[in-house]
Design a protein around this nucleic acid. Structure first.
Lengths: 210, 210
DNA sequence: TAGATTGTTAATCGATTAACAATC
DNA sequence: TAGATTGTTAATCGATTAACAATC
């Protein structure tokens, strides 16, 4: 079934997943595109179109099975498995992610954290010890690493990404405010926090008077 | 000039701003839509369309003045002023933002941080002291607060947002994985970190083989 | 069966790209 | 002036919405 699916659709999948999870917790067995749309502020039509990019998960006259649809979307997203993450940079963001257990809870496990700062190397963050960036090549050679989290200063992010991809890393979760150039075959998700704040600032300035 | 401008355009503005800042640092005086496009992976046409939503900042035959365009976009975004931020929740994310100086550097100053946990209240984070959530109403009454950062658990985020908006807060930077319902006149920027990670997972699974 | 709701095609809407006249 | 590049209109492309036949 699923050929090419547009990015717009993919970016909505986690929202579906989250709402279906909530519904499941509430004990809902079944939901129609109508109801789900009302809940998520989407049209029923869009929901049916989105879901049908991946096949017919619904039943006419009934709607969708909540647990079944949740599971299917989870599988489509690839979050039905464990991903191991290595964090580069033990600054504010790196520490926050390492300490958080919400990613862990959804299968994204932080397995190591690296830094160049001798002051930080050897210190504990949760149940990890900050490792020396000089040892990262060996670490990657010896351990399964699915995703590298780039939590380093902007001016070195490109160089770090390049180094890591030369060690075979192919997925990056980038928090540095730069547009990385990565080799063919790599995948990237940017989290440009400052940019979100700037868009928020625009909205504050341009909201229509109530 | 600027009537309604689509969200797609607004979300590109911070990228323009960042690249123009870099160009300014590199000493560039002038840039054409062609060159900027090559740098940002956008078409020259799109850049000209975007910029012209806000008026003619360029000169035919020359291009755009780098400092002038940067300044104009900054003004459009409303980042030519100081915004004061209050953080609710002194967990991993709250602390990371409070400690970070990168937001500070671009005019988003954290002026207070609140929590309900007696263990956290009174502790220091950077040069702030964690305050008691019970005192937040008084604090907001006495101090200018432009933006509230919601760094609280998902299950209480809606209630906290509601409380804060009843105190007059109108802008929220939300890190909780929920879709907040806010009163008319409020503006919101979500940072759903887990969702980004899930999209990354999808991309890992579906990248075409090289 | 009748009612409900999907899957899917067609229509609409909006965003991006192309083209080119205006002009620095 | 000639060359370059914008501002802006028109064409294209893609995404969302509407409609409805299929079917549970």
């Amino acid at each position: 079934m699923a050929g090419y699916v547009s990015d717009a659709v993919i970016r909505r999948l986690p929202g579906y997943y989250r709402h279906l999870q909530e519904l499941e917790r509430e004990g809902a067995q079944q939901i129609s595109s109508q109801e789900l749309g009302a809940r998520m502020n989407l049209t029923a039509s869009q929901i049916r179109q989105d879901i049908n990019c991946f096949g017919g998960f619904g039943r006419q006259g009934y709607g969708y099975s909540v647990p079944e649809l949740r599971e299917n979307i989870g599988r489509i997203l690839g979050i039905d498995r464990i991903h191991s993450m290595l964090i580069v940079g033990a600054g504010n963001i790196g520490r926050a992610i390492a300490n958080s257990n919400s990613f862990e809870a959804s299968g994204f496990q932080t397995t190591a954290i690296f830094d160049v700062d001798p002051q930080k190397i050897g210190t504990r963050i949760g149940d990890l010890t900050v490792m020396d960036m000089a040892d990262i090549h060996d670490y990657i050679a010896d351990n399964k690493v699915d995703i590298c989290v780039l939590a380093v200063p902007a001016n070195i992010a490109q160089a770090v990404a390049q180094e890591l991809s030369s060690y075979g890393i192919e997925a990056f979760w980038n928090f540095a405010p730069v547009d990385l150039k990565l080799p063919e075959g790599c995948v990237l998700m940017n989290v440009h926090l400052e940019e979100g704040l700037q868009v928020l600032s625009y909205r504050m300035l341009n909201k229509r008077p109530r």
